[in-house]
Design a protein around this nucleic acid. Structure first.
Lengths: 192, 192
DNA sequence: TCAATTATTGGACACTCGTACAATTTTAAA
DNA sequence: TTTAAAATTGTACGAGTGTCCAATAATTGA
């Protein structure tokens, strides 16, 4: 997004929403790769100039979309805690979020099976998590907090990918079990 | 690569090498994003048509470059073993490989700091590893082998990123220690 | 309210992309 | 060596990209 600094007027908000909706809609009909800026402008009913007024390119818009979604899971309200708590809490919230929008996600995955979108999304979530958690997290072993958070999100991403993209039928309980086993730290209990 | 099936004649080999060299060279001068097919053709002294004869696009060429590099570490010669052995062996080989080409890597990283290249590379390595290891790996806990291998490579990638991209000064021994701690499985010894 | 500042829009530009196809060169077989 | 088949190359095309700038519209403060 080009205008982090400026205040967002009502008109600007309308424009941002129009484009993010256009992207969301476009992704149910074609792969992200196939989406063009022209597409989005047509869908959103704004000229190209306006698009480039707000966004660098379609990746930038995608990131904005991600930010809207990530905002929904309130990572900033995470309690201070140890690795395990944070791992499981983040996982739960992301899992529930995707699960809630199951129908939409299914439509998107028809044209986007390669995991690029989920990778991008969890990468975004990781960056947000990074900032919020690095100072909070209580690391069990002597490791840089940054590395631990990154690994935490990578592992979550892996399990979410296994469940939602590769579509292995798993209950949430089982998914959690996989997560904890993969993560492997002996200190973490395997049940809630 | 478009011509997996056909035999590679000497002429074709010359062309492939010319383009992969062109890519390698281009990456020391600009970001991958900035590299254009025209660039590569100019550098390699071949017409665009020839480029598209051999490759889908620049990503395809990049993958070919990766395949050349990955071939150097002989993943296919990996002994059958448990998770820990495979984790450490793969890590060692990738670490050594990058370390050997330290000077080149440094040049590339000047214009490619975002980790995209390393991510792509380890992703490629993972895919190769996936195929070779899924049937070999002895999984400690009840988890799909596919998931374990993916997690294994993701963790390796994370530490390599920490050392080589984020440029934290670490001895190989320490890097290995980080790897094992991150990976966290209690069964793995922390020393060689 | 009206002017001044700021934002949005339309159009043009130079560029890249990937494809298609005909002309040419290379390769391999007879 | 000659010829038929296959691969390579030149050229042109439609479509997309991102930038720039001037004209137009919208906000805001005086």
């Amino acid at each position: 997004m080009k205008q982090q600094t400026k205040k967002i007027t009502r008109g600007a908000q309308r424009t941002l929403s129009a484009f993010s909706n256009a992207m969301s809609q476009a992704l149910t009909q074609q792969s992200f790769e196939a989406v063009t800026v022209n597409n989005l402008c047509q869908q959103a009913n704004y000229p190209r100039s306006t698009f480039y007024n707000y966004f660098e390119d379609k990746y930038d818009l995608l990131n904005y979309c991600f930010s809207l979604i990530v905002a929904e899971i309130h990572l900033n309200e995470l309690a201070i805690g140890d690795e395990g708590q944070i791992l499981l809490t983040c996982f739960d919230r992301l899992y529930d979020l995707i699960d809630q929008h199951k129908a939409y996600v299914a439509k998107v995955l028809v044209h986007n099976q390669d995991g690029f979108l989920l990778a991008g999304f969890t990468n975004y979530a990781q960056q947000v998590g990074q900032k919020l958690l690095v100072d909070k997290i209580a690391v069990v072993q002597e490791l840089p907090a940054e590395l631990v958070v990154a690994h935490c999100f990578a592992t979550i991403s892996m399990v979410l990918n296994w469940v939602f993209v590769k579509q292995n039928q798993l209950t949430k309980q089982d998914a959690r079990l996989y997560l904890v086993r993969l993560y492997g730290k002996p200190g973490l209990a395997e049940t809630k």
